[in-house]
Design a protein around this nucleic acid. Structure first.
Lengths: 147, 147
DNA sequence: TAGTATTGCTTAGGCGCATAACGTTAGCCG
DNA sequence: CGGCTAACGTTATGCGCCTAAGCAATACTA
């Protein structure tokens, strides 16, 4: 592959990352959230209480990041952390009522953001989009196999 | 749009951002670079010397980020900063020989990364990819118009 | 020409993310 | 059992990115 094509792809991904995150930040600010935290809330809302290691895995983020994010969300009252009964090392994270309410608001924003993102694109393209993105993600994911 | 579809899109973008950046970091580490710096080098290599404000615009990044990145790349010897002759506020950034050599290495990595990213995807899809991504980027870009 | 707004850059502080190193608890196996 | 490895979580540190605030120089305009 020649450099121009490669650059077109890599740069497009880079810019998309920056802008999508920036837009997310703008939408989340009124809720008092920072990008990344919304994923944590949504994951807990989707799957229910879970220990940090599982959260780390679900979010695709390293454990220290989870430690700090949960600490901040806990300080904000959106999340509660309790020692796990079966494993004295682990700590279980769960949504508070406040967190659940916030998750609902995030969900609404999430829909707005997705609609805004794919505005003007043919339905076919939109339908195939997640598959394409996930394929790329899988290709560059060092977590499994290649490592 | 329902939440599941929206989540599929947003989450796909989020994960792609994380993984692509992580992969970039892995590839760049042997060169002593961190993700983001490669874009700066490539931009200078492509367009030639320019002031930081222009760099900031080209990279899609805020001025303070450029200040720190150029400072570090300057300390590493890859970039040189000189006061602009026509504007006493501005400072012109340009590649050193070392920086130019590094840019060539980055270009090679850039091709590898792009190939790896789109591995197994039909050529048609690959060809349309930058357009799709840029459309989304434009849709969520608060920089122009909507602001 | 004087006064004001704008532009270019920097500093300070904050967040998400990462890696490295550490203590603690669980699990495995000789 | 005792010991060794693996897993959970935390702290420390560093980077890119951001916003807010400030200083210096330029541009605009009355």
């Amino acid at each position: 592959m020649d450099f121009d094509q490669a650059d077109g792809i890599n740069q497009a991904i880079r810019r998309l990352s920056l802008r999508h995150r920036a837009r997310t930040a703008t939408l989340l600010t009124p809720l008092g959230l920072h990008p990344g935290q919304e994923a944590l809330l949504l994951e807990l809302d989707r799957t229910g209480p879970m220990i940090q290691a599982k959260l780390s895995d679900a979010l695709g983020v390293e454990p220290p990041s989870v430690t700090l994010m949960t600490r901040k969300l806990e300080a904000a009252g959106h999340v509660r952390r309790a020692p796990s009964p079966d494993d004295k090392r682990a700590s279980v994270v769960e949504l508070t009522d406040s967190g659940r309410a916030l998750a609902d608001q995030v969900k609404a924003l999430w829909c707005d953001l997705a609609e805004e993102s794919v505005a003007g694109m043919p339905a076919e393209t939109v339908a195939g989009l997640p598959g394409i993105l996930n394929t790329i993600t899988g290709n560059v994911d060092a977590r499994r196999s290649t490592a």
